[in-house]
Design a protein around this nucleic acid. Structure first.
Lengths: 173, 173
DNA sequence: AGCAATAATTGTTGTCGTCAATAGTTGTTG
DNA sequence: CAACAACTATTGACGACAACAATTATTGCT
């Protein structure tokens, strides 16, 4: 499990050599930038991708990925959650949840416990080390976010967060 | 709402209809929501995912996906682009570009032309129908964006767009 | 008791990104 | 000017992952 970080950590060198493109500063005033990023939806998609990559590369050293992290954070808020609820709330397929919880269990971050009410249901709970891990990586997450939100000052970050949150709660999930 | 991904090959059913799940109102004041969406980076990731899905489901009827759209929009801004530039600027692997341009060529939206300077290079240009298609889908894109940004008024959308753009130009690409 | 619905799980399929290898072409250099 | 290194587009292979269908065990209904 978890092998080969391999690739995209330091993905900043597209082999600039000779007549290559003049390593450009790239600002939004160039026409191609406006053409590409004129639409907020597409912009969101692009940034979401980058954010996910950053998060993943940060979690990679721990052997898990963004989804695992999402599950962990959800578990941290409810303490005792049947898998079907994880599936419904996080929007992942039930079959995906199986593998995710398997991994978390293998690492000792969570464990399945039988439900007292329903014997088909398995309740997933966060363990001690899972909670610890969450606390540790939380800091790393903030660091990533800080890196991502580079040019924004605190007030602007607050604004952005509030706006995104409004959108998020609209569409649920 | 739009909770279930549901979309794949043929059926694209945004399905605001079916309310099979016990739809909880879900607002950001619930503790689990704060726990999950406390971090701006993760929030961005999540919304980017949703935005991408929306875009894809919108383009699906045309037979292409978001990447094709990205290529088309880039082509629209430069008119005549070697494939290696597409690869570098959009962040896709050169081998991915091959398939994408193949599809676009097959649909008549773009075509490869030999480069006068370098016989190994192929210049991709946007055709008439490609430009038309772009204009048509641009409207659809705006509709999607509008749907996505539902609860925000025009001023807020402007603010959001500006903030996202600042982040985007920072990290290049 | 019978029967539909549900929870977790397995297996399959198609898509996608990454990496390695190849053919044709260019530029450099000894 | 001839050999070599670098580069462009392309192909093929491999692994990761999401979406569906099918299975097993259990529950609720009537």
């Amino acid at each position: 499990m978890l092998e080969s970080p391999a690739s995209s950590t330091e993905h900043r060198e597209p082999a600039i050599t000779r007549q290559n493109v003049t390593a450009k500063p790239i600002d939004a005033h160039e026409p191609w930038m406006r053409g590409l990023h004129a639409d907020t939806g597409y912009l969101l998609y692009r940034l979401g991708l980058r954010s996910g990559q950053l998060f993943n590369s940060c979690l990679q050293e721990s052997g898990l990925r963004l989804r695992h992290y999402a599950v962990l954070r959800y578990l941290a808020t409810t303490d005792g959650t049947p898998q079907r609820e994880l599936s419904a709330r996080l929007g992942y397929d039930p079959s995906a949840i199986v593998g995710l919880v398997d991994d978390l269990e293998k690492l000792g971050f969570a464990e399945r416990r039988p439900s007292p009410d329903d014997r088909r249901s398995r309740i997933v709970v966060l363990t001690e080390s899972g909670s610890d891990f969450l606390r540790d990586t939380d800091e790393a997450g903030l660091r990533v976010t800080g890196e991502l939100l580079g040019p924004l000052d605190p007030a602007e970050r607050e604004t952005l967060h509030a706006l995104l949150l409004r959108i998020a709660e609209d569409g649920l999930n």
